[in-house]
């Protein structure tokens, strides 16, 4: 295990009276994939937002390369080489592929105060990045993002992060909207990023995806780190149980079976029934 590029110590974050993150301490190492697992609402997205400069923690410290830092904002984090694909959004339907790829980091040509946006260069780089990603239907960087499918947009967002992620790549449920082929491709990208020495933080609800790329796993339950282990230290069943928020899968299945038995084989009508 190499020296961590990011070290979180006792990170707490609350929104008003709601404590979302409690005492999170984690190490994120270059050349490794950290899989962040946990139930809906466990605090995964909130945690990576403190790493990408969107939120400031209420207490606790973040160290980068051994020095304590405080991100002044998302731009600061991305300038330090942390690129994030957030769970929702990240694409701009009425903008062109080339323009949306470079939002905030527009390439320019020209001199002095008369620099102009280099549309040709932006389009070329963006189209190439997406095509490298396996989306070969995209040929024209002037196309509007809104005309792409959900998965294609997701791929565009990931391609963007990979392009700009110099040191740390954070992916919040990147495979959620993707087809089997594209999801596999994301996993390949993650492995490739790892091989190139990037630190990757990968959030997913799919055990298979987590097991396929993860070197290091952290499970959040109600905002606290419930388990922190390395590849091979836990079985797939144990991981699944932790991801379900601590309840064992067997228990959940028993609940469903019991319900089916008492309700003539009908599945529960609404989510609340099993709560």
């Amino acid at each position: 295990m190499s020296t961590p590029i990011l070290k979180l110590r006792n990170i707490c974050k609350s929104f008003g009276p709601i404590d979302v993150l409690q005492d999170i301490s984690l190490d994120i190492c270059p050349g490794e994939v950290l899989c962040l697992l946990g139930d809906n609402g466990a605090g995964k997205s909130t945690l990576i937002k403190t790493l990408s400069g969107v939120y400031r923690p209420n207490s606790g410290t973040i160290e980068m390369d051994g020095r304590p830092i405080e991100f002044t904002g998302p731009r600061d984090a991305s300038n330090r080489g942390i690129a994030t694909v957030h769970q929702f959004g990240g694409t701009f339907p009425l903008m062109s592929i080339g323009r949306s790829f470079f939002i905030g980091v527009e390439p320019t040509k020209g001199w002095g105060p008369f620099k102009i946006f280099d549309r040709k260069k932006a389009n070329e780089i963006a189209v190439k990045a997406v095509r490298d990603f396996g989306i070969t239907r995209i040929e024209d960087g002037d196309r509007l993002v809104g005309g792409l499918s959900g998965g294609e947009r997701q791929s565009l967002a990931i391609a963007r992060a990979v392009h700009f992620g110099a040191k740390v790549l954070i992916l919040d449920e990147p495979t959620a909207a993707l087809g089997v082929k594209q999801a596999t491709h994301v996993l390949r990208i993650v492995n490739e990023a790892k091989r190139r020495g990037l630190a990757v933080v990968f959030i997913t609800h799919q055990v298979m995806h987590a097991m396929a790329v993860g070197d290091h796993f952290a499970v959040l339950i109600r905002g606290a780190v419930a388990a922190d282990f390395r590849k091979g230290e836990k079985t797939r069943e144990e991981i699944t149980d932790l991801m379900a928020g601590g309840e064992t899968m067997a228990e959940l299945e028993a609940q469903i079976d019991g319900y089916m038995a008492t309700h003539d084989g009908h599945a529960p009508q609404h989510a609340g029934a099993s709560a």
Binding site: T84, H86, G90, T91, F92, I103, G104
Partner: peptide, 29 residues
């Protein structure tokens, strides 16, 4: 025309109107 369609700043305004949160996350003030 220069500022909005040729300088990089125009991009920021369109991004902001398209999706304010994503624009902020992308580092636009």
């Amino acid at each position: 025309i220069y500022v909005i369609h040729y300088s990089p700043y125009g991009n920021w305004i369109f991004a902001m109107g398209g999706d304010k949160i994503s624009a902020r996350n992308a580092g636009i003030p």
